[in-house]
Amino acid sequence: MKKIHIALLLLAVAGIVGMSFFVKDLTTQETFSTAKEKSGKYVVVKTKLDNSVAIEYDAVKNPNLTVFYAVDAKGQRSKVVYTEAKIKDMERSEGLDLNGYMRDGYFECNKIQAKCPSKYKDDPAQAKKNLASGSANQY
């Protein structure tokens, strides 16, 4: 075999191995009920935090455990066990994308993407004013 063939073969193998790391991120969005049907498979569930139940987080006892309840798009509520520290401003977020696995009676989450609230949601007059002055595009 020529050196170029070996190099191309190694490059192809490296590409396949590299892509395998991203397979988990190529999941479809589920609800808690469909995630339950796919028990043991990595899924993403779009939810909102259930504010009627307090978030359980104790940085002294276990800084890598956060327990809370979330409601999915169909209104189904589930306990969520997040295996990391509580994310900042979780209570203020408009939505949470939970990545993980459905277990017996709860959703085991290892990654959360919080949807930030719009800074103009509460004051549409200020939003119009900022757009008119052009300051909305300044960061």
Score class of each variant (00 low, 15 high):
138 Q>G: 01
8 L>V: 08
57 Y>T: 08
97 D>H: 04
93 S>E: 01
5 H>I: 14
123 D>Y: 00
136 A>V: 08
77 R>F: 00
65 L>C: 00
16 I>M: 10
2 K>G: 15
25 D>C: 00
120 Y>H: 09
51 N>W: 05
4 I>T: 15
35 A>K: 03
89 D>F: 05
121 K>P: 04
27 T>V: 12
72 D>Q: 07
87 I>T: 07
1 M>S: 13
13 V>S: 04
22 F>H: 12
123 D>W: 04
70 A>P: 03
55 I>D: 09
66 T>P: 02
67 V>G: 02
123 D>K: 02
54 A>F: 07
12 A>M: 14
7 A>L: 15
111 K>W: 02
45 V>L: 09
51 N>E: 11
134 G>K: 10
65 L>Q: 05
46 K>Y: 09
18 G>Q: 05
82 Y>R: 04
114 A>Y: 00
118 S>F: 00
97 D>M: 15
23 V>Q: 04
21 F>S: 05
121 K>E: 13
45 V>E: 05
52 S>M: 01
106 Y>L: 07
88 K>V: 05
101 Y>L: 08
84 E>M: 12
24 K>G: 04
70 A>S: 06
53 V>S: 08
28 T>A: 08
92 R>E: 06
33 S>R: 12
107 F>E: 07
96 L>N: 08
75 G>K: 10
83 T>G: 11
95 G>T: 00
103 R>S: 11
116 C>H: 09
12 A>R: 01
121 K>C: 03
86 K>F: 03
15 G>V: 07
52 S>T: 06
73 A>V: 10
39 S>G: 02
114 A>W: 06
90 M>Q: 04
124 P>L: 06
8 L>K: 14
48 K>G: 02
93 S>G: 07
103 R>N: 13
5 H>G: 03
18 G>L: 07
6 I>D: 06
40 G>Q: 03
20 S>L: 02
6 I>V: 15
128 K>M: 14
88 K>R: 11
55 I>C: 11
76 Q>W: 04
108 E>Y: 11
38 K>D: 10
42 Y>K: 01
22 F>A: 11
28 T>Q: 14
133 S>M: 09
64 N>R: 11
83 T>E: 13
21 F>T: 03
47 T>C: 15
126 Q>V: 02
40 G>M: 02
12 A>Y: 01
10 L>Y: 09
52 S>Q: 12
88 K>Q: 06
66 T>R: 00
110 N>G: 03
137 N>K: 12
37 E>N: 13
88 K>C: 00
114 A>Q: 15
65 L>H: 04
10 L>H: 06
20 S>K: 00
32 F>S: 10
118 S>G: 13
111 K>G: 00
51 N>A: 12
53 V>Q: 07
6 I>Y: 10
96 L>C: 13
63 P>R: 01
102 M>H: 06
26 L>V: 07
27 T>A: 11
91 E>M: 01
118 S>M: 02
51 N>M: 02
2 K>D: 15
137 N>T: 03
30 E>Q: 15
90 M>T: 06
73 A>Q: 15
11 L>R: 07
98 L>G: 08
86 K>D: 01
47 T>Q: 13
